[in-house]
Nucleic acid binder design. Structure first.
Length: 415
DNA sequence: TCTGGGGTCCTAGGACCC
DNA sequence: TCTGGGGTCCTAGGACCC
């Protein structure tokens, strides 16, 4: 039997853990640059703030009632780890599905009891309110969790009679695997609830919507098509991209942003002991200004041999950027992707140049220094790191909470 | 003034191979 | 009356997830 444990309004709940004055208030966490709402507390939802809604579209009289925080992903990741730790103590198998939800396997025995224990430990020990959904497939556990969010806290759909009653009432667009596009098409065919989807003809569904939705249907029927994935599969690509706080015009500024993203991406790459076979860079002007000249170039290139050396990736990223940059555009966003990832211990040699044995050592020293002395204690000049003035493109984060759990200097003070 | 970031999988079509 | 058959690999686009 599968369970899904999902934190309520996770990012907002984390902010409320460290700032009790926010509890019971309408809290909204904004995306990078404080652009959109990416999490809302119940009170903020009641005020009508929608997921992904641009904050500047919220009417002023509503906005005045909101407590806005800038996204503090380092903090959220840290708290997420503590929640997962509790789950690993209680369940034989745990699949960390996202930063705020995990699938678990229920051992034989009293499920309600274990679910209750998990739920209350997370709430008491970490301070994060959460719900538990239980079902014979992951899709049904997801559905159970959604139903639990309405108030019950824990919902078990193992019983077929109970399940049928819920399926008949559950909107098809809320089913895991049914997005906006599919929901609209299904609706036009008269498939409105999860129960309708269960009863639909499988062959027709497969032909019209593909195997993914056919699998979702099977899962809703109680046939498990997806098992717990305890070990995280190796990444296929690693991407780092940001919208700029301001539009940027000069090549040098664009290059600095791209360099910063490349450095970040390489750090993630080495953390997973992977190496990249290719590098991909793209630039974007501001799509929300359709009257301004638009340009969104994208270019990828293979490295001569797979590498995890930031210097090599930087060289390539800079060359790609130089090749794509055109004067006269106002750039708003850029990104760097690392492609064709392979395990760090396998290596396809290069016939002509060979591998510099000092490269791995140098990267080790770099990473160790940054672990010990803090992020970016040591970096690359091309990112304009350590410049006195903030770079042109840096993010707006006007409402950033402290790194309570990651920096000694920002530790919470209790009077 | 202000509009997120990071992923996955599937499918269709084209190029190319024998 | 009439065009071979069976593959692979790559790319772009579309759907989905958080």
């Amino acid at each position: 039997m599968f369970g899904l444990v999902d934190a309520n309004s996770f990012y907002c709940s984390v902010e409320q853990v460290f700032d009790p004055a926010l509890r019971g208030k309408a809290v909204v966490v904004g995306s990078n640059n404080d652009g959109c709402a990416i999490a809302r507390s119940d009170q903020a939802k009641k005020l009508g703030v929608k997921m992904g809604q641009p904050l500047h579209e919220i009417p002023p009289h509503i906005r005045r009632q909101l407590h806005i925080r800038s996204a503090n992903f380092g903090l959220y990741g840290d708290i997420s780890g503590r929640v997962v730790g509790i789950l690993r103590d209680l369940f034989p198998k745990v699949e960390v599905y996202s930063i705020d939800e995990s699938f678990v396997e229920f051992p034989v025995g009293n499920r309600m009891e274990v679910a209750h224990e998990a739920r209350s430990r997370i709430e008491r020990w970490v301070g994060i309110p959460n719900c538990v959904g239980i079902g014979p497939t992951k899709t049904l556990a997801k559905m159970a969790n959604k139903i639990a969010k309405a108030g019950a806290g824990i919902v078990d759909l193992a019983d077929e009679g109970v399940r049928a009653a819920h399926l008949a009432r559950f909107p098809v667009e809320d089913v895991w695997g049914v997005g906006r596009k599919f929901a609209a098409r299904l609706g036009a065919e008269g498939i409105i609830t999860a129960g309708d989807l269960v009863k639909a003809d499988s062959e027709t569904l497969r032909a019209r919507y593909g195997v993914v939705l056919a699998r979702t249907q099977a899962e809703l029927q109680g046939v498990a098509c997806s098992d717990l994935q305890e070990a995280e599969p190796d990444r296929q690509q690693i991407v780092c991209s940001r919208s700029f706080g301001r539009e940027v015009v000069e090549l040098e500024d664009v290059q600095q942003a791209v360099a910063t993203f490349a450095i970040n991406a390489c750090e993630k790459l080495r953390k997973r002991s992977l190496q990249a076979g290719g590098v991909w860079v793209w630039l974007n002007t501001n799509p929300f200004k359709p009257d301004a000249p638009q340009y969104h170039p994208s270019k990828a290139m293979s490295l001569i041999s797979a590498s995890a050396d930031t210097r090599e990736v930087l060289r390539m990223a800079q060359a790609l950027t130089r090749a794509m940059y055109r004067k006269g555009y106002r750039y708003k966003k850029a990104g760097v992707g690392l492609l064709d990832l392979t395990a760090g211990d396998s290596h396809q040699g290069d016939l002509f140049s060979g591998v510099d044995p000092r490269s791995a050592k140098l990267m080790e020293v770099l990473d160790a220094a940054n672990r010990k002395f803090g992020r970016n204690a040591m970096s690359f000049a091309s990112s304009a790191w350590r410049e006195k003035t903030k770079p042109q493109w840096s993010m707006n984060q006007q409402h950033l909470s402290p790194a309570y759990t990651q920096k000694w200097s920002e530790l919470l003070r209790v009077r």
